[in-house]
C-alpha cells in the first residue's frame, strides 16, 4: 500500500446503505409535505399571519399561560403535601392521600372540569362556619364558581394527583442509607425532608414535572368547554364569525408549539442546578492535590 503512514491514517465510521437511503427518503418526503402546505391555498397563510398577533389571540394566550402557571404551582404544592401524606407512617393519613389520588387520576379531567363548573347542582349554597352552630356565612355557589375559578380548581386538583405520584416516585429514588445517615445525626422528620430527601429527589422529579407543564399547557385547551376565553377558545370565537377554521387552528397550534419549545430551556437549567457536582465551584478551589495520610499495616 502506498500513501500515508498506516499509523497516521484516520479510521472512518461505517455508513450503511440504509443510512443513505433514509436521507434520500427523508428529504423527498420533506419537500413533498412542505410544497403541498405552502402551495395549497386552503391553508390561507395570509390569514394565519394576520391573526397570529391579533389582540384577542394574545389575550387568550395570556390566559392560557396564567392558567398553566397558576394550576401547575398550586397543583405542585398540593401534590407535595399529598406525597408527604402518602409516605406517612400514620395509616389514615396515607390512605386519605391514596384515595384522593385514585379518584382524581381515575376520572377524565374534562369531566372534573364540568363537574366543578356545575357544583351548584349539588350544593346551591356554600357556607363557612363552625359545624352545628349558627356562626358562619353562606354564599351562592354560582356566584363563586365562575368559569375561570372552576377551571383553576379543576386543573389544580387533577394536577395535584399526578404531581403527588411523581414526587412520591422521587422520594423512593432516595436511598435508604441517606435516610439512615440523617437519622443517625438526629435530624427531625421535616429537616430530613427539606435537606436530604427533597434535594435528592429533584433530579428525578424535574424531567417528569417538565412533561407535566407541557401537558398542562396544552391541557388548558379543555377549559374552552367552560367558555373560558383561553387560546383555543379565542381562536374558536374568531372562526365562528369568519369561518376561517383551519387558519385559526394553525394560529393556536403555532402558539402552543412555540411555548412548549421555550419551556424546555428552563427545564434543562433546573436539571443542571441539581446535578450535584462542583461545576459551580470556582476552579481554584478544586485544583489542589493532597497526599493521603500514611496507612497503617494490615
Amino acid at each position: 500500500m502506498n500513501g500515508l503512514d498506516p499509523a497516521l491514517k484516520p479510521r472512518l465510521k461505517r455508513r450503511s446503505t440504509f443510512e443513505y437511503v433514509s436521507w434520500v427518503v427523508c428529504i423527498l418526503v420533506g419537500i413533498g409535505v412542505l410544497s403541498s402546505v405552502a402551495t395549497n391555498p386552503n391553508f390561507k397563510w395570509d390569514v394565519v399571519a394576520k391573526y397570529f398577533t391579533h389582540e384577542s389571540i394574545l389575550r387568550g394566550l395570556m390566559l392560557t399561560i396564567f392558567l398553566t402557571v397558576a394550576s401547575m404551582a398550586l397543583g405542585t404544592l398540593l401534590g407535595l403535601g399529598l406525597a408527604i401524606m402518602r409516605a406517612s407512617s400514620i395509616k389514615p393519613i396515607a390512605t386519605l392521600a391514596g384515595v384522593y389520588i385514585t379518584i382524581f387520576r381515575g376520572t377524565p379531567v374534562l369531566v372534573q372540569l364540568i363537574f366543578w363548573f356545575n357544583l351548584s347542582a349539588l350544593y346551591p349554597n356554600l357556607s363557612i362556619g363552625i359545624p352545628f352552630t349558627d356562626i358562619g356565612t353562606a354564599i351562592d355557589t354560582n356566584a363563586l364558581m365562575g368559569p375561570i375559578t372552576a377551571a383553576l380548581i379543576g386543573l389544580t386538583l387533577n394536577e395535584a394527583a399526578y404531581m403527588a405520584e411523581i414526587i412520591r416516585g422521587g422520594f423512593s429514588s432516595v436511598g435508604k442509607g441517606q435516610i439512615e445517615a440523617a437519622d443517625s445525626l438526629g435530624m427531625s422528620g421535616a429537616m430530613k425532608m427539606r435537606k436530604v430527601i427533597i434535594p435528592q429527589a429533584m433530579p428525578s422529579i424535574i424531567p417528569a414535572t417538565g412533561n407535566q407543564v407541557i401537558g398542562m399547557f396544552k391541557g388548558t385547551s379543555l377549559v374552552s368547554v367552560l367558555g373560558v376565553a383561553e387560546l383555543l377558545q379565542s381562536a374558536q370565537l374568531i372562526y365562528a364569525r369568519t369561518y376561517e377554521t383551519i387558519p385559526l387552528l394553525i394560529v393556536a397550534s403555532l402558539w402552543y408549539l412555540v411555548m412548549t419549545m421555550l419551556l424546555s430551556y428552563p427545564q434543562s437549567k433546573l436539571e443542571q442546578k441539581y446535578s450535584h457536582t462542583s461545576a459551580r465551584v470556582p476552579r481554584k478551589a478544586r485544583k489542589v492535590t493532597l497526599t493521603a495520610p500514611e496507612g497503617i499495616a494490615r
Binding site: E180, A181, L185, G186, P199
Partner: peptide
C-alpha cells in the same frame, strides 16, 4: 417521642459501610 430519640442519637455517631454522605 421522636425529639428525645433524636437527642440520644446525636450522642452516638455512625459510620456506614457505604459512607452515605449527602450527595447534594
Amino acid at each position: 417521642p421522636p425529639k428525645k430519640l433524636a437527642l440520644q442519637r446525636t450522642r452516638v455517631g455512625m459510620v456506614f459501610q457505604s459512607f452515605n454522605l449527602f450527595p447534594n
